[in-house]
Simulated scan of single mutants.
Amino acid sequence: MREEAEERKRLEEQKKQVALEEAKYQAEIAKIQDLLAQEPEDSERRADIEAKLQELNVQLDLVEEKKEEITKLQNGKAGNVYIISNLGSFGDKVFKVGMTRRLDPQERVDELGSASVPFKFDVHSFIFSEDAVGLENEMHNRLRARRLNKVNLRKEFFEVSLDELEQIVLDINPTAAFNRTMLAEDYKQSLSLGEEEIPLSNSDDTIEQSDEDDPDNGEND
């Protein structure tokens, strides 16, 4: 799938960037350790050097954690299942339940809301799993009777109440965070604007969106 290939390419680029960061911190730590070895025990500068070394080690730990996350995502099954809604586009009882392998799942949500719908999506839950594919399938199976498009299963929209969806998430993963709020900021702001308050369109600012640019076209997440 196109989306999967793009995500794997993105992860590979992120892995290279993380490797550069890791090498940078390792080199800096080696320099600081050399300085510390040469510094007398009673030196006033020693405490500052030790503090700097501790700070660099913390940064290196964070980089190594990110490296591990990328490796898990590259293994094929790890990822995040996301649950999102779009009040202005679909109402308050339609949710999209999908999966992404991106290191930052919010990137995928932002992409989905950038072109194919008039308003941005609200996130109700990101659930990380070592087997995100299996978790997504379990969610879809529990919601199969609520599926809107029963022909094209890649369209992962379900008609379900917020209460029921929250309960399903808690049944599957009791530790998962679930946000019940539908902010729908652009939609609510649009409702509050009178016709005279809506800015005139400028043809120079309007770009016709083709099907090829639709982030939900031909994808299964």
Rank of each mutant, 00 (worst) to 15 (best):
E21K: 06
S203G: 03
T206S: 13
K9Y: 10
E50V: 04
T100I: 04
Q189D: 13
R180C: 05
K52M: 07
S43G: 02
S116F: 01
I32T: 12
I49C: 01
N86G: 04
Q209H: 12
R146L: 01
E159L: 03
K67R: 15
A78M: 09
P40D: 08
M139A: 07
D211I: 15
E64M: 12
D214G: 02
D221T: 11
V63F: 12
N217C: 07
V81F: 06
S43T: 10
N179Y: 07
L165C: 05
L35G: 00
R2K: 10
Q26P: 00
E6W: 08
N75W: 04
D122C: 01
A177V: 07
D42K: 09
F128Y: 15
M139G: 04
Q54S: 13
N149P: 03
Q59Y: 11
G113A: 11
E138T: 14
V97L: 02
T181F: 06
R46W: 09
A37T: 01
E208K: 15
R154H: 14
G98C: 02
Q38K: 12
K72T: 02
V123T: 14
I83G: 01
I127L: 14
V63Q: 11
N173D: 14
T206P: 04
D186Q: 15
A5S: 11
F119Q: 05
L62H: 13
R10E: 14
S190W: 15
N202P: 01
D110A: 08
V58H: 09
D171F: 10
N141D: 15
E65D: 14
P40N: 09
A37E: 11
A132M: 09
P174S: 06
A47H: 06
S210Y: 12
R144A: 02
E197I: 05
K52D: 03
P105M: 09
E166F: 07
V18F: 08
H140D: 02
F158H: 11
L11S: 03
A19F: 05
K9P: 00
A132F: 12
R180I: 04
L183Q: 11
E28V: 00
H140V: 13
P118Q: 08
Q106H: 06
G134Y: 10
E55Q: 15
E107S: 04
N149C: 04
A19R: 10
E136Y: 09
R147S: 06
N57A: 00
Q209G: 10
V97K: 05
L200I: 05
N173S: 06
K72M: 07
V81E: 09
K188C: 10
R45K: 14
M99V: 06
N217A: 12
R8M: 09
D216I: 15
E6M: 13
I29E: 02
F158Y: 15
E136L: 08
D216L: 15
I70M: 10
K93Y: 03
K77V: 01
D92I: 01
H140W: 09
S85T: 05
T71M: 12
K24N: 03
P199V: 08
K150S: 07
S203D: 09
D211K: 15
A132E: 06
N86R: 00
D104L: 06
E138H: 14
Q14R: 11
N217V: 07
E195N: 13
D214S: 08
L193K: 15
L135D: 04
F119Y: 14
A19H: 07
K188W: 11
E12D: 04
Q74I: 11
K24P: 04
E164C: 06
L183F: 08
S161A: 07
